[in-house]
Design a protein around this nucleic acid. Structure first.
Lengths: 224, 224
DNA sequence: TACAATTCTTGATTCGAATCAAGTTTTGAA
DNA sequence: TTCAAAACTTGATTCGAATCAAGAATTGTA
């Protein structure tokens, strides 16, 4: 992947979409393209941050692992999304690991490059603040749903949410395997399987592998 | 409370500690002092944000409430700490409510004032980013502990953490009533009571109301 | 100081979801 | 194309913590 293509991808990224070509070019020199084969980790908990990341292709899973080996998936990154910003502004190491769930191409935007832009461009500052704030809100939502909803309600909420983002809201595609989805929802794979069966038996959804057809949106919304 | 005192408090706040007196004065004009009697709410979920807040006196509880009326405390704000920054940078309303648990004096730093400073001062930008990032990390930690630890481990982790911040690490003071602490730890008050009894019976802590003496730090750290 | 309201504790029971177990299906790599 | 590994499902059982209940202690205020 050559420089001009990287520059193009950077200029498409919302955070940098207002930058002038000269700034983009400068920024491009402060990036590094990284290939992460499926299953490999981009960074581990405890690693120092050298910048933040923009995912170009593939998928990245963010998560934590307990001393007992239990895993909790915190987020799934899709192409066009960035991650790792928050760690940059703290003199701390990553509290999470990042692992490719599909062969991934990731752009590392180095600390120096982004700090330089931040010092010179108000728009990027605003968007960086907005980006981290959005992540913040997402985390608060996650805590709320883990704390105040049972497993069925969490799955329903999740299905309705991805349905909203889907081109065809009735027919949604799970973005990862069910083990990962279960971990994001803070339930075991067994429970996920059983809850899906209950929703199916209630005539609300059809499940075909990762494809889920919501046959009764209103019913799903009010299911107890 | 007069202007010069407000200016003083602003200049003590880490985010603004590098600002020149003229900037502080300008900022002071963009603030509003708000008294919140114990039990009253400063803002509710869904309210529009007019700025962010710096707590001068008292204590503020941040939380969410489910449609069924169940409450989950997300954070406890102490004097000198700010809150509500993240909402400012999104065109969204508050996802949480803020309620005074003690008579509180809060400084509202208006959107216009802070945006003006952000556009003109690189230091404040860095510290704002660091502040929101720190909140981010805290939330990730909370999700991790809710997801991967049982109620006993969560309480132990909490006690060890507040012990670290305490002037006398062996003798810590709970910053709120046990109902609130329990909600922060995602357990019921009954369970909190029982877990404390277990730790006491194991010879690890002494409990006297809100005061807790850690009689065996190492034992607490390794308790199972 | 009194006392009503709130907070906290302790006991009995229930319940949602985890765990353990054993297939079945799907997947991806040789 | 094959086949071992991984993912998924379904059933039986266990378990941690919630809920329900009632009394004790504390607190704030009239």
């Amino acid at each position: 992947m050559d420089k001009s293509l990287i520059a193009h991808r950077l200029s498409e990224f919302y955070m940098f979409s207002e930058l002038q070509p000269a700034q983009i070019e400068h920024l491009t020199n402060g990036t590094r393209l990284i290939d992460v084969p499926r299953g490999n980790t981009l960074f581990n908990r405890g690693d120092r941050a050298h910048g933040f990341y923009l995912l170009l292709e593939g998928q990245i899973k963010l998560g934590v692992i307990s001393p007992q080996g239990d895993e909790k998936v915190i987020g799934l990154i899709q192409p066009g999304q960035s991650f790792g910003e928050a760690v940059l502004f703290l003199e701390r190491s990553f509290p999470i690991y990042a692992q490719a769930t599909m062969d991934a191409k990731v752009l590392l935007i180095t600390r120096e490059a982004i700090f330089n832009i931040l010092d010179n461009d108000v728009t990027v500052v605003r968007r960086m603040l907005a980006g981290i704030s959005a992540r913040n809100r997402q985390l608060v939502n996650d805590i709320e749903s883990i704390s105040l909803q049972n497993s069925t309600q969490r799955l329903i909420g999740y299905l309705l949410q991805i349905s909203t983002d889907s081109p065809n809201p009735e027919r949604v595609q799970l973005p990862a395997n069910k083990l990962t989805i279960a971990s994001m929802l803070n339930i075991t794979p067994e429970t996920l399987s059983r809850v899906m069966l209950r929703l199916h038996n209630a005539g609300l959804i059809e499940v075909n592998g990762k494809e889920i057809v919501i046959t009764n949106v209103a019913g799903l919304r009010t299911f107890e």
